[in-house]
Design a protein around this nucleic acid. Structure first.
Lengths: 109, 109
DNA sequence: ATTCTTCATTGCAATATTACGATGATAAGT
DNA sequence: ACTTATCATCGTAATATTGCAATGAAGAAT
């Protein structure tokens, strides 16, 4: 049916899945890594860097912004993007919690 | 066009995105969390637990297995699933590396 | 004022994902 | 042998995602 049955899952499961989904595209990983290196950038730089068309980059930026991973600030006629520190730390904590829940065991098959 | 331009990105970017994509569905997060709690389970248990149809659960398990996050062992007429420790640690390391790359800065806008 | 730069939005085509009913395959139980 | 239990696969419908050309909006530069 192509529609996710969100109501079957907890809020935290849906939230983590939503973040992971946004991270689930190489262009968006590349954008994040670029921002981690350069601290900030404008859309045009990413177009040059990644080799995707401007509307495509713009769309990926919108999705990253949608979940709060990045922030965009209007500066004259360009928009300056950067990592949102608070959200970044929050996401890191969520993933850490997931990974930390693993305890090696011998009940495995 | 609905096809990801994989060749524009590095192998590690594609790999991380692929993992994140698989984690990007609440049912698969729920399956993983269930396995983290219970160490192991069979498909039928997840059907009862999550409230999705058996073919749907089976499909999600297939995707998790596809990237190596879980393992499935045939036991009689059922299949026992569990977290793949090596892959789990590998994925954890990949995400840790991504998050660790962030350095707070004042160049942000 | 006009043009240029920068970016978002719209509209569309190609493809991918999600979900499940129906069916098949395999092993266990009777 | 027959039935049951367990799971995968196939086929299909509904929806979502990816990518870009075309266009629009808004400030900067001349």
């Amino acid at each position: 049916m192509g529609i996710t049955k969100t109501q079957l899952f907890t809020e935290s499961q849906n939230e983590l899945a939503t973040i992971a989904k946004v991270l689930g595209h190489p262009a968006r990983i590349a954008i994040i890594q670029y921002l981690l290196r350069q601290d900030q950038c404008i859309c045009g730089h990413l177009v040059d860097e990644l080799g995707l068309a401007q509307p495509t980059i713009s769309q990926h930026l919108k999705e990253l912004k949608g979940v709060g991973i990045i922030r965009g600030t209007i500066e004259g006629n360009s928009v300056c993007y950067c990592i949102n520190p608070d959200k970044w730390n929050e996401i890191q904590a969520q993933f850490s919690e997931l990974f930390a829940a693993y305890r090696p065991n011998n009940n495995c098959c």
